[in-house]
Amino acid sequence: MPLLQVENLRAYYRTQVYGISRSVRAVDDVSLELFENEIYGIAGESSCGKTTLIKVISGTVKPPLRIESGHVLYDFGALQVDMTKIDPEELRQTVRWKEISYVMQGSMSVLNPVRKIIRTFEDIVRTHQGIPNKKLFLEQTRDHVMRLGLPPDVLNLYPHQLSGGMRQRVAIALATIFQPSLIIADEPTTALDVVVQRGVLQMLKEIQAESGNTVLLVTHDLAIHANVADRVGIMYAGRIVEEAPTQIIFTAPRHPYTQHLIRSLPMIGDKSVKESLSGAPPNLANPPSGCRFHPRCPLAFDRCRTETPAMVRLPHQHRVACHLVTEAAE
């Protein structure tokens, strides 16, 4: 059984203004599975539903976001949890941070600016586990930080005294203090310089390899997925349109959107002309009929305009939602 099983998940933002109800279908019929000991990458443009998907997976759904249908099932070995039904208090005590933790984009908002780093560790440990022995806690925290290759002195500094890369590594140290089963990293290196980004992602990868847990890495930067992820899911307009092991996504993509994305990536050493797709990602309050990519797809035909393509399973853990692939398979 996989660590996480998401089944036909639909999560919409519903608002009512002057009696007119609107819904933004940010996550629409998404199914995916995460296994132990892997790095799963989610790629997609802004407003494709990446962040909403993470909110549901991590159990931080707040109005106007609502889960319309589907399941989010976790199997932590001793503990099975359905994220769509769990009681918030139980979630806080048994799951959050102990089994699922996150690393966010701007770690300045995770770290309290007026308290030393060690106090933030203390807050988290006290909330989720309690600190019966202060000395032991300090010792373990130092060990943990040093094991991750950070100088233990950072614990006695304030967040503003650290560089952006160091702050992000501290955020990773915080997220791994209880050895969680799943670490969700949402654009963890987006604001960082390339050299620092490389260092931070290397650290995340090492931790994963050592502890054998699962990392869900969300970033719009496909080049990062190429170098870090084991499997990649490509999202477009609230749906996963293609999913495969990283190797296949980059060498033999089947969905026209993925194909275009991979082809358009600039690379040092390559001066060939790259083209952009025409049009822009759709507004999810009023998405196109049928396949949501059809208005921009150079290969669209009649069926794409009326019928939503179903996910087709291909060999080698490869899934694609495209009528061209469906018809080729038939």
Partner: peptide, 15 residues
């Protein structure tokens, strides 16, 4: 070297 390349062949070097 640190710029990640969108290819799967240079993972080891980048790591």
């Amino acid at each position: 070297e640190s710029v990640p390349k969108p290819v799967v062949t240079e993972r080891e070097q980048w790591a």
